[in-house]
Simulated scan of single mutants.
Amino acid sequence: MVVGFRGSLDRSTAPTLRETVISELAKGPDLVVVDLSDVDFWDACGMSAVLVAYKRCRANGTALGLAGLHGSAETSYRATHLDSVIPTYPDVASAVAHWAAAA
């Protein structure tokens, strides 16, 4: 399952991402890929929303990956070392292919 997001991921929009991922978990997917290729900015609230989504996915037995992270968002993500916890992929196709090969 792919969840896309556009624009800024900040205090006002982060809850939308978090709640979307959580509601999609009710469908029982094995994998959720969050497509961030159209995100131009994120702050600590955005990172927190991704981390909460990851924890909920993990508790549900669902894998979570991030796709398309770029620019300053990617730089800040890697600086926090969250990339060692939540895998990132250049694009959605790469994320799906990785998880399909691992299954």
Rank of each mutant, 00 (worst) to 15 (best):
P87G: 04
A44D: 11
S84D: 15
I22F: 07
S8M: 13
A101L: 13
Y77S: 09
M47E: 13
M1A: 14
P15L: 11
V3M: 06
A101D: 14
A63W: 00
V50F: 09
A14Q: 07
N60Q: 14
A44R: 07
G65F: 04
G65L: 03
W99T: 07
C45K: 08
A49R: 03
D91A: 09
L9D: 06
S94E: 12
A93R: 14
L36H: 01
T75C: 09
S8H: 14
L51C: 13
V52D: 10
E19P: 01
S94V: 08
A102G: 07
I86T: 01
G68E: 06
K55V: 11
A44V: 10
A49F: 03
V52F: 13
C45F: 12
S76I: 12
W99I: 02
D30W: 02
W42F: 14
A97N: 10
G28N: 02
A63Y: 00
L64K: 01
S37I: 03
C45R: 10
L17I: 00
S8F: 13
A100V: 08
R56L: 08
E24L: 06
H81I: 09
A101N: 13
C45G: 09
D35M: 04
A100T: 14
P87T: 08
C57D: 04
V3C: 10
S12G: 08
A44F: 09
S94P: 08
G46F: 09
D83L: 05
G46A: 11
S12C: 04
E24D: 13
Y89D: 01
T13Y: 05
L69S: 08
V50S: 02
V33P: 00
N60Y: 05
T88P: 03
A101K: 14
R58T: 13
V39Q: 02
L82H: 08
A44Y: 05
L9S: 09
H70N: 12
A14N: 05
K55Q: 14
R6C: 13
A49T: 03
P90L: 00
D38M: 13
R58K: 15
A26T: 06
Y77D: 07
V32T: 01
L31K: 02
R58Q: 15
S48Q: 11
G7C: 12
L64Q: 04
V96C: 05
V21Y: 06
P15T: 10
S37P: 01
K55I: 11
E24S: 12
L36K: 01
S37V: 04
A14W: 02
P90S: 02
V50P: 00
M47D: 10
D35Q: 05
E19I: 02
W99R: 12
A93V: 13
L82S: 09
N60S: 15
